[in-house]
Nucleic acid binder design. Structure first.
Length: 444
DNA sequence: TCTGGGGTCCTAGGACCC
DNA sequence: TCTGGGGTCCTAGGACCC
């Protein structure tokens, strides 16, 4: 059997952990640059706030409504969800972290374990309570013979209180009932496009789709993933388990706060994205053989001249060295930069990723000693940044020049807008919560 | 004035090999 | 008038996930 643990309204729930006063109130969390709504509390969903609406339209759509607004704070979300995963690690024989807020769990088959399935049901309920008590976040659990059905079960657990946060699909009767309830667009693996096609073909629910013949699915979609989804809805276990594979490409890109026309500022942005890519490569013990850079003007501003471009370059020797990746990215930027445009977004992609030991060296590249030196340098930089906070040490080209000097505080100053960012009480000494012993106890 | 940031996989088609 | 039968690799485009 498979289980899935899914954090309810993850980012909003994270914000509530240190703000219990927000319980029961509408909350939204915004994307980078305070751009769009990316997460909503149940109360915000009930109000009719849609996912993805630009923040500036929120006040127009909901005038005179009190909504708690937060900029996204990934430092906080990463740390709190990590606590949830550490509990799951203790409670399950094996698991796979699927995303920041979801974890698949491999559970012993109740019939093999010679237990009644009610054992798994109460196990799920206990997991929910433990996470709630120890981290302060609500989690929903779905259990079923495959991952697609487990996802549907977790939606049911989220939606109906009778399941007590854990819903199990363990026989054909329950399976059909769940599929009948589940709209086709809510099935894992069926996105907007396929959902529209299926609806036009008369499939409104997961059950409508599952009742078709396998051959019809193959012919209609000519796609192995759709056939697998169909098989899983019918109870088979065929979607491969993606274990913690190393990433095959890594991208760091940002929209700017406002627009950027001058080359120097652009270069500083790109240097930071490149350095971040190199950091991610090192964190998973890999090197990249290709670096790419892209540049965009603001597509929403139809009144302004538009330009976008992308170029990539192969490295003579695959690398994860900050200096090498940043230097290559800057050379590429120079090639695609055109004067006279207002840029809105840039990004760095590293591809052709492979293991970092041993690295295949080029006959004509710089000597091995130089590579070793850069490797040691990066190791020291990584350690310092891990210990004292990211961007404590950066390359010169990553520094934004600003009056009043440079330094840690200035590295990302004004690079990204986050006017409603919450503190980080679990990761920053400056944000730690202080209790004054002389304070009167809080009133209930 | 303001509109996110990451990833993966599959298929078709073209270029190339023998 | 007729023109084979295997492969691999790469890219673009389109779908999906969170």
């Amino acid at each position: 059997m498979y289980g899935i643990a899914d954090l309810d309204n993850c980012y909003c729930s994270c914000e509530k952990v240190f703000r219990p006063d927000l319980e029961g109130k509408p909350i939204v969390v915004l994307s980078n640059n305070d751009g769009c709504v990316v997460a909503r509390s149940n109360e915000a969903k009930k109000m009719g706030i849609k996912e993805g609406v630009p923040f500036y339209q929120l006040a127009e759509q909901f005038p005179n409504q009190k909504i708690a607004v937060f900029s996204s704070n990934y430092e906080l979300y990463g740390e709190l969800t990590g606590r949830v995963v550490s509990i799951i690690r203790q409670e399950t024989p094996a698991y796979f972290r699927y995303s920041i807020d979801e974890c698949f769990m491999y559970l012993p088959d109740a019939s093999i374990a010679n237990q009644s399935t009610s054992f798994l049901q109460s196990w799920g309920e206990k997991l929910h309570h433990r996470v709630r008590r120890e981290v302060g976040m609500p989690i929903s659990i779905g259990i079923a013979p495959n991952k697609t059905l487990a996802k549907i079960a977790s939606k049911l657990a989220k939606k109906y209180d009778v399941y007590r946060h854990c819903c199990m699909i363990d026989n054909d009767y329950k399976r059909e009932k769940a599929l009948e309830w589940c709209p086709i667009e809510d099935v894992w693996g069926i996105g907007r496009r396929y959902a529209a096609r299926l609806q036009s073909l008369g499939c409104k629910t997961a059950l409508d789709f599952a009742k078709h013949h396998k051959g019809w699915v193959r012919l209609t979609f000519n796609n192995i993933n759709m056939v697998r989804t169909w098989q899983e809805l019918n109870g088979e276990d065929v979607v491969p388990n993606e274990e913690l594979a190393k990433k095959k490409s890594i991208c760091t890109s940002r929209s700017f706060n406002g627009m950027v026309a001058d080359y120097d500022t652009l270069r500083t942005h790109v240097s930071n994205y490149a350095a971040r890519c190199a950091e991610k490569l090192r964190a998973q013990n890999t090197v990249a053989s290709v670096v790419g850079v892209f540049l965009h003007t603001n597509a929403f501003r139809e009144d302004l001249p538009q330009y976008w471009n992308f170029q990539e370059q192969r490295l003579v020797t695959p690398s994860n060295a900050g200096i090498t990746i940043v230097q290559t990215a800057n050379e590429l930027l120079q090639k695609i930069y055109r004067q006279g445009y207002q840029y809105k977004k840039a990004g760095v992609i590293v591809m052709g990723i492979g293991g970092d030991s041993p690295i295949q060296q080029d006959l004509f590249d710089i000597d091995a000693e130089q590579i070793q030196k850069m490797r040691r340098l990066d190791q020291v930089v990584d350690r310092i940044n891990r210990l004292h906070g990211s961007e404590t040490i950066v390359l010169g080209s990553q520094q934004y020049t600003k009056k009043g000097g440079v330094g840690k505080a200035d590295v990302f100053a004004n690079a990204i807008k986050h006017d409603f960012r919450s503190p980080n009480p679990t990761t920053r000494w400056t944000d730690i919560i202080r209790l004054n012993v002389n304070d009167k106890p809080l009133e209930q």
